[in-house]
């Protein structure tokens, strides 16, 4: 059963990454940065940073419109905030636990030492 779960996860993972590569290519294509365009830019000695910078300079001005405001979904936002806060709390507690475990170890060592005497 466990093996089957791992296998499913692998299939899901592989499918997800092929799609991601395609999505990433589409993102550039949709912005006019097609494979041919990028090849030409590369031939002309332009690095990806140069290309993206030029693209931002031309298109962000041309486009002019401000980026979309985030959709305010208070429930989702609250869940994510809580999740982040919980992750922080768990991290803090883990550190505390480690510190206390170290203290206990030290005390146990001290007890042993005293018992030996």
């Amino acid at each position: 059963m466990k093996a089957q779960i791992v296998e499913n996860r692998t299939v899901r993972a592989n499918l997800g990454f092929d799609k991601k590569i395609e999505d990433a290519k589409k993102i550039l294509d949709n912005a006019g940065l097609t494979g041919a365009f990028l090849k030409e830019a590369y031939k002309n000695g332009k690095t990806p940073v140069d290309v993206l910078r030029e693209h931002a300079l031309c298109n962000n001005k041309k486009n002019g419109k401000p980026p979309k405001k985030a959709e305010q979904d208070p429930v989702f936002n609250a869940i994510i905030d809580e999740w982040c806060a919980q992750a922080e709390t768990i991290e803090v507690l883990n550190k505390k636990i480690k510190r206390l475990q170290n203290k206990v170890k030290k005390q146990q060592a001290r007890i042993k030492e005293l018992e030996m005497k």
Binding site: H55, A56, K68, E71
Partner: peptide, 15 residues
């Protein structure tokens, strides 16, 4: 980045 604008300054309140 969004479909409309490929690269944008990151603002915490934007999507």
């Amino acid at each position: 980045g969004t479909e409309e604008i490929l690269i944008q300054t990151f603002f915490p309140e934007k999507e």
